[in-house]
Amino acid sequence: MNTTHLYHFFDTDFPLNQEGLKELIESFSESNFKKGERLLTEKSVDSKLRFLNRGVVREFYSNDQKETNINFYTKAQFITDFSSFNNLLPSRKNQECLTDVQLLIIGKDRFQQLLDKYPCGKSFIDQTFQKLLEEREEFEYIRLTKQPEEMYQMLFENSPECLQKVPQYHIASFLGITPETLSRIRKKIASK
């Protein structure tokens, strides 16, 4: 099991004592999923802490009429719905593998045991929620104040791997535009 990304995440962003870090890393198990598989469905409780080790995952809301993409995970990071995980509430989100995906997973009970054993782990939860709130506020601000072309330009500059790895119709949904409009925006930006 390759835990390099996971170890690096904790060692740099959430330093724990080395004994606690080793025990935490060893508590994760590896799971592989195929392209098209769902990792999370709305109304289910996210009871596992899931770390994206490899692959691409889209996160979206769904209703009877359409799906609206809200996030794409292309880098090694946690992809758990922390609100559902922490509060044992049904998720409103769905997650689907856009490629074959490898996750490192630990169950909520085992994770809680480690938090109880190593109090410094509580900072992980606090900082993660703070980061998620900051990202959500920034995303809402961008969605409400920027035009789709500006949003695409930001993706182009800040997340080029996302534009390379995610199908264009999903990018269009994320931007709230049609694939045809996205095509025109891409051509316009490419000609600059």
Rank of each mutant, 00 (worst) to 15 (best):
L24K: 12
I25V: 10
I25P: 03
I25N: 07
S27E: 12
S29W: 07
S31D: 10
S31P: 12
S31Y: 12
F33K: 08
K34I: 10
E37K: 07
R38V: 14
R38Q: 13
L39E: 03
L40R: 05
L40C: 01
T41Q: 09
K43D: 06
V45C: 00
V45W: 00
S47N: 15
K48H: 12
R50G: 06
R50N: 10
L52Q: 12
L52R: 14
L52A: 10
N53H: 08
R54V: 08
G55I: 13
V56L: 02
V57W: 14
V57S: 07
V57L: 13
R58H: 03
E59Q: 14
E59K: 11
E59R: 12
F60M: 04
S62V: 13
D64R: 06
E67I: 13
N69S: 15
N69W: 15
N69R: 13
F72I: 00
T74R: 06
T74S: 05
Q77H: 15
F78I: 07
I79S: 09
T80P: 05
D81P: 03
F82P: 10
F82H: 10
F82E: 09
N87L: 12
L88E: 08
L88Q: 08
L88F: 03
L89I: 12
R92T: 06
R92V: 04
K93H: 10
K93C: 02
N94R: 15
L98S: 04
L98G: 04
L103E: 10
L104N: 13
I105R: 13
I106V: 08
I106Q: 03
G107Y: 01
G107D: 13
K108G: 02
K108M: 01
D109W: 05
R110S: 14
F111E: 00
Q113I: 13
Q113P: 00
Q113C: 12
L114T: 04
L115P: 00
L115G: 06
L115V: 09
L115F: 12
D116P: 03
D116F: 06
K117G: 02
K117M: 08
P119L: 07
C120A: 15
C120E: 13
G121K: 15
K122M: 01
F124D: 02
D126E: 11
D126F: 15
T128G: 04
F129N: 06
F129A: 02
K131H: 07
L132N: 09
L132G: 01
L133Y: 01
E134F: 02
E135R: 05
E135L: 05
E135A: 11
R136W: 04
R136N: 14
R136S: 08
R136I: 10
E137T: 04
E137A: 04
E138Y: 05
E138V: 07
F139H: 14
F139I: 12
F139E: 13
Y141R: 10
Y141P: 04
I142H: 07
L144G: 08
E149L: 14
M151K: 15
Y152M: 07
Q153D: 11
M154C: 05
M154W: 15
L155F: 14
F156E: 14
